[in-house]
Amino acid sequence: MSIFNQAQTQRRKTNSDDNLIPLINIVFLLLIFFMIAGKIEQIQDAGLTLPENSQTKPAVAQPITLQLSKDNEIHLNNEVVNFEELPNALTQLLQEHPANIAVRADKQVTYQDLDKVLDTLRAAGFSTINLFTLTTEAS
C-alpha cells in the first residue's frame, strides 16, 4: 500500500513539473528579450526632459556629465553644484579625466543659462562638448 502511495505522489510531482514547462519557456523568452534588447545603465536624469532629435548618431558615454535642469540646478556627476563652485569642481575633474564632457540640459532651459555654463566649460579647458538629446524617429 505504501509503495503504491509513493508511486502516486511521484507521478503527481512529475505531472505538475510538466505543466510548468510552457511557463518556463515563456519566462526564458522574456528574459532573453530583456537581456538582449534592453541596456543596463545608470538612471541619472534628475527630472530632466531632454530635447528631442531625429539624428541617429549614438551618444558615447562620457566620464564627466553635467546636468542642467529647468530650475537652473546644476548636477556634476550626480552631485549638486553651485554655479560659483563649478569652475573649481571642473578643474578637479579635468585632472582625472580626458577633456570631453557630456551636457544634459532640459529642453526648457534658455540659452541665457546654458551659455553661462558653456562659457565656464570652455574656460575650464574642455575641447569637445557633447549636448545630449533623446533620439526620436525621423518624421
Binding site: 534588447a37 545603465e41 532629435n53 549614438p58 557630456a102 579647458g125 557633447n130 545630449f132 538629446t133 533620439t135
Partner: peptide, 19 residues
Amino acid sequence: FMLTSSFTKFSALEMQSSL
C-alpha cells in the same frame, strides 16, 4: 532585467569649443 534595462536611445551633438 525588466527593472534595470532601459530602451531610450540618446544621441549627442558634438560642439567644438571656441578654443
